[in-house]
């Protein structure tokens, strides 16, 4: 599968990453190599294989609906670069 520079710019934008033009060229090559490597899997015939969504053969791991202590407000906000009246302060959204 051919990967274009446009694809890389698009993915970078979705991931909110700022990339320079030389970086785009570099990543396009690197990502293309990775995809090409993974592509090898397509050579296998998987028509008889059930899709796997989780590597472990485990199902239904549940937790009872019982409250556990939360963090204190001060602890919650302690990593916030900016806080205001008990809230995280985030930049203008639109």
């Amino acid at each position: 599968m051919a990967l274009s520079e446009k694809d890389v710019q698009y993915v970078a934008k979705l991931a909110r990453l700022e990339v320079t033009d030389p970086e785009v060229a570099k990543y396009t090559q690197q990502l293309a190599n990775i995809l090409e490597y993974v592509e090898q899997l397509n050579k296998l015939d998987t028509t008889q294989v059930e899709p796997l969504t989780h590597p472990l053969d485990v199902k239904n791991v549940f937790r009872p609906d019982e409250p556990k202590p939360s963090l204190t407000q001060a602890e919650v906000l302690s990593n916030g670069p900016e806080v205001q009246s008990g809230h995280f302060k985030v930049p203008k959204i639109m």
């Binding site: 937790r63 609906d65 019982e66 409250p67 556990k68 202590p69 939360s70 963090l71 204190t72 407000q73 919650v76 906000l77 009246s85 008990g86 809230h87 995280f88």
Partner: peptide, 25 residues
Amino acid sequence: ATKLFCGCRTTFGNEANTQVCPVCL
């Protein structure tokens, strides 16, 4: 009584960011 993936309570109207834990954060 608790959130979908952690034991934090779901009470409405409590002080901001007091029903929060490392999982939901």
